[in-house]
Structures are given as structure tokens and as C-alpha cells.
Write a protein that binds this DNA or RNA. Structure first.
Lengths: 222, 222, 222, 222
DNA sequence: CATGAATGAGGTTTCATTCAT
DNA sequence: TATGAATGAAACCTCATTCAT
């Protein structure tokens, strides 16, 4: 088992192989249950080499979190058109997000399921990345409000809450869409295209936000 | 550390003490990192007693998941008014959800962060509970559509997606609202009341759904 | 599971019930693997009661060894006719031995398989019983030699060796005839009668010993 | 206690050292009472290394049983002269058996006392080895009968019984001869030579069998 | 007479990590 | 660059045994 043995590989390449193996193993087993033995075997190298390059399980996990976080942020960032209106930026960002998580489910699982649940310092690292995205989304919502001319009517706190709701909705959909009949040989439920998932979420969110921004309010007394 | 020592307690009581300790410890450390030693110490009993009553770490975790799942579903169920219109049911359900997760953050953390990431069979148990809630929300969205007279215009798959988005948004808000300056003795950021969180989410969601149901659609080409 | 609950039983009776349960459990599981929990459950009493009457696992095991040893020696002793010729005494003793081990296989298993393999002090207790039998057999062989008029031609050491060989042969046969298709519902191999097993061994042994000693052929009818 | 520390030993060598330590410890304490801690200490290595190489206590015990069984069968097999008459084959086989068990008393104790009393699957492994020897002995008895021209007069079942008696006698003698004043520094009772033990048993057995079969007297000098 | 409640001690097993080559 | 050999520490779990009622 494990990758094909190939000797004398440059360090940078070997490190990536190890991190690929780590992503796979952490996603499958969880941080604690994943053993360095298994990671080394999946990577096709000996355990001491993993330690030589990545120093410790903690540092390996941190490195994985960093790499996957940066890849996700890069994918989303690359997808948005900087100068476009807020709604278009959100739309393209969501497309990028769903595309990346669909193509890279193990990396997403490590970030979303594992890193966040392992306490400090890992939770902080992924929280920082999430905060970055949250800031971006918060800014977009603020910008949209401004574009609609309702500047100041939404408290900062409320805008933050909306951003959290929106990001949470996206995460939930990403998990729903990419989870499921993995091993089902027959009847493999086809996953919706990232574009369709993004459209569904935009419809849900934007119509709501549009109303909010435009004045229509639901009320508990209603 | 550890609860006050109280000797010779009836089994049923001790079991609840142990499960309380387990919820606390699993929430703090995660399933794998929580040791039976620590759980026993927090419960104020010896380790063998934990095994005598709860049999194994796996069974203890399962018992915790079951207890917390049922408590959450009961809280939400008790909050909704069965005969009311869909929007009112959703509103009261969300209030119940945020109230319960705010009062019981450790239980929620075990369900949402730990159980879902520990693979089979734990993930399945929470998934079943989540599916129950998802079914309820899905039915409410369908009912709302029917009340608005747009029966059939939303595909089942799309209604499911909207339910997943809504539940994900609620989960994200629950985490956001209840997380944070736990240890900060001073400057304790005040948590919003469950009612306000529910209202924010209802505004976000319902205005959006209202638009959708009423016909207004955001479009990527727009 | 376990015996029917019957309260307020006199101590002597309860002790026998417990020892019966212990024999069964020690035979099934071995000394170390048998737990006091299981013994108490099989006996139909609570664990503290076992300790109240039998004091400890070691003492319980010792008591079992003593009881079963005495029962075996008593069975063999009761079978032999004290004044008869040596060959008849051996023949009747073997019949008694095979009859007792066939009727009481668990007790025999505890003595032969468990007690002898658990080191001190248990091995010594059963060794003492075995030595008693060995002394008896040695005396019989000596007596037979004297009866045949070849007194002194066999060294004491050789007579002892012959006794060990004979007893070992008997033990091997006892295990062979009583072991086997326990659970086989169909095709239950019928066990030979103790009398036939004894006859086979007597023919094997006595013809050999008779030749060695110089005497005539032994026969069960003789 | 513990062997001399020798670091960085090849795996094959270490495995044999561990199995030697295991034989010693299982023989002294019994399977259950022997702890992996003690085995590792006797072997002069740390416990994890024992697990790394032998996987578990069960597998270690099985490996020991296999090694000692094969050694015993090999010793007996190597001792017999294949083409010789039945009595000579039995004689040389017994010499080989007593020589091996005398030289290797711990291995014999593990096979005869421990493995057979630990239930499945260990009992089965040693039972298979014993059955192999029993088959060999049974064949020899049958061959001797044929050589003496009394083919068919002994029922198969009776021949089997005789083989069991003979093997049991040998086992009993092996235990008697090799047991005893182990720790007695002074007055160490001298053990009889394997050759003498074999001669005693042959005289006991063959004279008996010879009479039964109708043939002449067996003699080690013959 | 009898038991539900409770534990100290010790068992097997795993794992992150290092050393010597 | 790369690895076979080795271990300290700690995890889960069991069991003989006792106390208080």
C-alpha cells in the first residue's frame, strides 16, 4: 500500500507529497486518530523523514491548515471581479467557493470538520481564515447597502450577523452537496454543479437581503 | 477541579452526573482527546464506576449524543405552536433553538463540533437528529409556499437546498453568538438574546424566501 | 441467567452452591479468566456474599481443589476392595477413577487442567492428592511383584516410574474419553463406559507388568 | 533480572529473544498471569517493541506454541529411523521425545501445561500437534500388530486407546522426570537420562503390547 | 442474611518521537 | 537523503475487593 516508491526526490516535492498524504489521512480519520505511521505510509516514505521535514504532528497539521486555507482563500479571491457591484462579487465568490470545495473535498473537510474542533492553536488558525472571508462578505453587504442608498440603517452588529448567516449557509450547502453516496457503486447521486449551488444560495440570500435593504421587514408581531 | 464528593448516590443520579461531566469534557477537549480519567475526575468518581455504568468510551459518547439530541429536539418541538402559520412556527422554533443552544453550549458543541466529525457510528446519530430537523424545516418551507399560492414552482431539491441553507445559517449564528470571550473575566462581551438572534435570521431568511415565493428572482445575468 | 433466586438458604447449602458455580466457571474459563462476578452470577448470589463465605478468590479456588480432590480420592477408595489381590484392587480402582471423572468432568478439569497449571500454592495441593494416589499405585505394583515372588528385582525408582506411567496413561484416557463432541447435536459420539476404558488400560498395563514381573496374564473375569 | 542489554539488534534476532523470554515467562507464570511487562523485561527490551514485532499477547502465545510444537515434532521425527521395525521406531522416538523435553523443559511446560488449558484457539493448535504424534504412534502399534501376524484382531478404537495410554504415560514421565528441585541449590536430585526413561517406558509398554499382540519380548539391546 | 455502590491496582495496547547508521 | 530499531508516556479497560446500609 502507499504511493510508489521514488527515491531521491527534491525536498519541496517530498513535502507536498507528505502534506497530500496528511490531508487525505486527517480527512479520513480525524486529527487524533490519524497516526504518523499511516501518514508516512500513504506518503510512501519512512516516518523519520516526515519528522525531518515537518518536525511534529502539530506542525504538520498546522502546515496543512495553512496550505489549505491559503488555497481556499486564493480560489475565492481569484474568482471575484474586484471592481464589480457587490452582488456580482458575492456571486462569483460563491461560485469559486463551491468549485474549490467540490474539487478539494478532503482539504475542506480538514479545515471545516477537523481543524475547528481540535481546540487551540488549530481552531485559531482556521478561525483567522474564516474571519478574513467574513470580513470580505461583511464589506460586500455593507457596500450593497450603500449602493441601495440605505447607509447606516443596518447596525454593524447586524451586518456581521448577516455575514455569519450567509457564510454558515454556504458551508452547510458545501457539506450537503459534497457528502453522501461515496461508495455507492450504482445509483451514484449526481452532485449539483457548483454554479447551481451558488445560484440557489444567491437567490435565497439576495432576495432576502434585497428586501431588508429595500425596507421590507418581517416582524414577529406580524 | 472536580465536583463536590458525594458518596453513595443512587445509580440514576450518578449516571447523569457522569454524563454531565462527559458533555463538559468532550466539548472542551474533543472526543479523542478527552480521557476517561478526566471525565471521571470531573464527575467526582473513580474510573471503574464510569465503566460499570456506561460500559465504554464509545457507549458513553453515544449516550451523551442521544441525551443531547433528544434535549435539543424536545426544546425546539416544545417551542413551536403546531397549528400556527409556517412563518410563526419557524420563528418560534428558531427562538427555541437559540435559547437551548445558548443555555446549553457544551451540549451543542458536542453535537455540532464533535459528534459530526468522529465518523461512524457517531456521525450517523447526529445526522439522524439533524435530518429530523431538516425535514421539519423543509415541510415548513413547503407549507409557506403553498400558503403563498405558489405550489409546485419550487422543485423538491431546491426546497431541500433552502432548508440546508437556513439550518446552516442558524448553526453558524448559534456558534458565533455563543463563542468567544469565555475566559475574559473583564470586558465580557454581552451575548445577544436568543430572541434577537432569531429575529435577525428570520429577517434575513424570510424576506428572501418571501421574494422567492412571490416571484422575484435574482439572476446571475442580472 | 444464573440459578433461580432462593432467599434465606442455610450457609452450608449456599457454600456448596457457590462452589458448584466456581467449579463450573473455573473449568470453563480457567482460574485467571474466571471472574468473581461470573461465579456469583452463576451461583445466583451477590458478590459480597461469596466473599463473606469464601473470603477470597484464592481461598475459593483452594476450597474447590480440596473438595474435588477429596471427592476423587473417596470415589477411588470406595471402589477398591481392601483385601483383594493387587490386580483386582487396581482394576476396581481404575473403574472408580474413570466412573468419577466421567460423571464429574468439570471437577476433573479443575484438578487436572487448571489447578496444576496455576503455580503455587494450588499446584502443590493437587500434587499432594496425586502423590497420594501415586503412593497407592506404587504399593500395588510392589505388592504384585511380591505376590509373583520377584521381590527386590525392581528398584524402587523403577516402580515409581511405572506408577507414573500408569497414572499418566489413565489421565490421558480420562481426558480422551470425556472430551469432544460436547455441542455436537447430531452424531454425538458415544463415550465408552468407564468399565471398558478400565479394561483396555488394564490389558495394556497388566500384560506388560505381568511379563516384567514374571507372572501370568491378567483378566477382568479372573 | 533481564537479559544483558544489547542495542540495535536485527529484527529476526530480537524476535527470537522475545520468544525465548515469552517461553520462560509463560512456563513460570501461566498464560494469563504472565504480563507483557515481565516478558519485555526478561527479553531486555521495551514493551512497545514486543508489540511492534509480535502484535499482541495472543499472537505472541500462538507464535510460541507454533515454534515449540514444530521443534518438538522435529526432534521426535529426527530421532526415528524410518525403515526400522515398529518397536525400534517407537524406542528411538521416545528417546527423542524425552531428550527434547529434558533439554527444553520450559517449552514443554508451555505446550503441555499452558497451551492446552487456555481454551480456543490455543488448545486447538497444540491438540493438532498432539494428534500428529498420536497418529504416528497409532500407526506404529498397527504396524507392530501386522508384523506379529495378528492383523485385525485389535479394533481401531482399541488401538487408538492404546496410543492415548502410551502417549499419556510418556507425558506423565516427562513431567515427573523434569520436575522438582529446580530452586534447590544443594542436593539437586539428578534427573535420569532420557535413554533410561525411554527404556523404562518401553519395557512397561512393549511387554504389555507384546503379550496382547502375541509376540516376543522387546529389549533395548535387541 | 444480603446487597448496591464504589475503588486501587494493574492489565493490554497505541502513539508521537528519537537514535544510530 | 533516508531508514530500521527502539522507547516514554499515556490511553482504554477489567478485576478482586470493601463499605454502608
Amino acid at each position: 500500500m502507499g504511493a510508489v516508491k521514488s527515491k531521491r526526490v527534491p525536498r519541496a516535492v517530498r513535502e507536498q507529497q507528505m502534506m497530500d498524504a496528511a490531508v487525505l489521512t486527517f480527512a479520513r480519520r480525524g486529527y487524533r486518530a490519524a497516526s504518523m505511521d499511516e501518514i508516512a505510509e500513504v506518503a510512501g516514505v519512512s516516518k523519520p523523514l516526515v519528522y525531518l521535514y515537518l518536525n511534529s504532528k502539530d506542525e504538520l497539521f498546522s502546515a496543512v491548515i495553512r496550505r489549505e486555507s491559503e488555497a481556499l482563500v486564493a480560489a475565492v479571491t481569484a474568482a471575484v471581479e474586484p471592481g464589480a457591484p457587490a452582488d456580482r462579487q458575492l456571486w462569483s465568490g460563491l461560485k469559486g467557493f463551491f468549485a474549490h470545495t467540490t474539487e478539494n473535498p478532503d482539504g475542506w473537510a480538514v479545515l471545516h470538520q477537523q481543524a475547528r474542533t481540535q481546540g487551540e492553536p488549530f481552531a485559531r488558525e482556521v478561525a483567522a481564515m474564516r474571519a478574513e472571508i467574513m470580513t470580505f462578505v461583511t464589506a460586500l453587504i455593507g457596500a450593497a447597502a450603500k449602493e441601495a442608498g440605505c447607509d447606516g440603517e443596518l447596525a454593524d452588529r447586524e451586518v456581521s450577523a448577516l455575514a455569519h448567516a450567509l457564510v454558515g449557509a454556504a458551508e452547510s450547502l458545501a457539506e450537503w452537496v459534497n457528502t453522501g453516496t461515496d461508495e455507492g457503486t450504482s445509483g451514484e447521486r449526481e452532485r449539483p454543479a457548483p454554479r447551481d449551488t451558488a445560484a440557489t444560495l444567491m437567490n435565497f440570500a439576495w432576495a432576502g437581503l434585497g428586501r431588508l435593504i429595500g425596507g421590507g421587514r418581517w416582524s414577529p408581531e406580524g
